[in-house]
């Protein structure tokens, strides 16, 4: 096992930041740690990395107890932090070389790894640039390069795409998947469910300092009652009997806003057909129709009673 955290408790005064937090990460997986801001993701990561003191619990990485001077463990861990952590006075190349040099003393090996990291994040044209000359997306790429240049076995990425444009975000996500294919185990924390859904092989959902659900994307969605979201554009909504729609089997909720009818249904394959038949019987003309499968937000909403982005 790559990471094994048991009963981790971290308090800030009266506030419990981590409440008996448990986590197991298997080799070769991409674990998405999903939760709203303030749910304890970064605190958990900092405790796992022995940066933060904690009140209770045990942490093992690569089956060894983790501590600040566990250099053998640290050598195989890479971290990409939420904030860009680079020296403003050093160029792109020098920053990557410096942080890689904290892990690899041999100059030739380091030179090769730095070149590979620069290539990996696509900063070849910017190696002599100072950080303040880089755009937000390029800075994030530099931040990633500094964290992974020493080619660690475990990479922890803490919200690496915050304030990044869509194109750079896609590049970053593709890069993370590539690192995983090359053999690295990844922990990816985010409050963007789409990102986690896109890259994670397993997802842990956090709230109030503990993991409230864990599994693959499909497993998590199967745990909830709600199925698809059906959106219908009604041309004559004044003729609609909304209560009759709500009374249909497997319908969890139905809301009409202007011409837009949104129906949340339970897990049944024939929900859409039943709704369409009913509307036809009521002589309601329909414009556009589309259906969405349940999202991780639905999972979070059903478990906690609040939106993931609240």
């Amino acid at each position: 096992m790559v990471i094994n955290v048991k009963n981790l408790v971290k308090r800030y005064g009266d506030l419990i930041a981590l409440d008996h937090f448990n986590l197991e990460v298997q080799e070769g997986e991409i674990l998405g740690l999903l939760g709203p801001n303030g749910s304890g993701k970064t605190t958990a990561i900092n405790c796992i990395l022995s940066l933060l003191k904690y009140d209770k619990g045990t942490i093992e990485i690569f089956d060894q107890p983790m501590s600040p001077d566990a250099y053998d463990i640290k050598r195989d861990v890479g971290i990409v932090m939420q904030n860009v952590a680079v020296f403003e006075e050093l160029t792109v190349y020098e920053n990557i070389d410096y942080f890689c040099g904290l892990y690899i003393a041999d100059r030739q090996t380091r030179k090769k790894r730095v070149a590979e990291a620069i290539d990996f994040v696509g900063l070849n044209d910017f190696i002599k640039f100072f950080p303040k000359k880089l755009s937000g997306g390029l800075l994030r790429r530099l931040n990633i390069a500094c964290g992974i240049a020493h080619q660690p076995k475990l990479i922890i990425l803490d919200e690496p795409t915050v304030a990044v444009d869509p194109q750079s975000r896609n590049n970053i996500l593709e890069g993370i998947q590539k690192l995983n294919r090359q053999g690295a185990t990844i922990i990816y924390t985010s409050h963007y469910m789409e990102e986690v859904e896109q890259i994670a092989s397993r997802i842990a959902i956090m709230d109030k300092g503990k993991i409230i659900a864990m599994g693959t994307n499909e497993e998590l969605k199967k745990k909830i009652k709600s199925g698809e979201h059906i959106n219908l554009e009604l041309l004559n909504p004044e003729d609609l009997d909304l209560e009759a729609i709500k009374a249909l089997p497997h319908i969890i909720s139905a809301e009409l806003t202007d011409h837009q009818l949104v129906v949340k249904s339970g897990r049944d394959k024939n929900n859409l057909i039943a709704i369409l038949d009913h509307l036809k019987d009521q002589n309601i003309a329909i414009g556009k129709i589309y259906s969405e499968p349940p999202t991780l937000n639905d999972v979070f909403l059903e478990i906690t009673g609040k939106e993931l982005r609240d």
Binding site: L51, D72, K74, R75, M81, V84, A85, L102, G147
Partner: peptide
């Protein structure tokens, strides 16, 4: 005190 400080603390040095 700084983000680079956090990165240095995570290194095996």
């Amino acid at each position: 005190l700084s983000d680079v400080g956090a990165r240095i603390n995570l290194a095996p040095t």
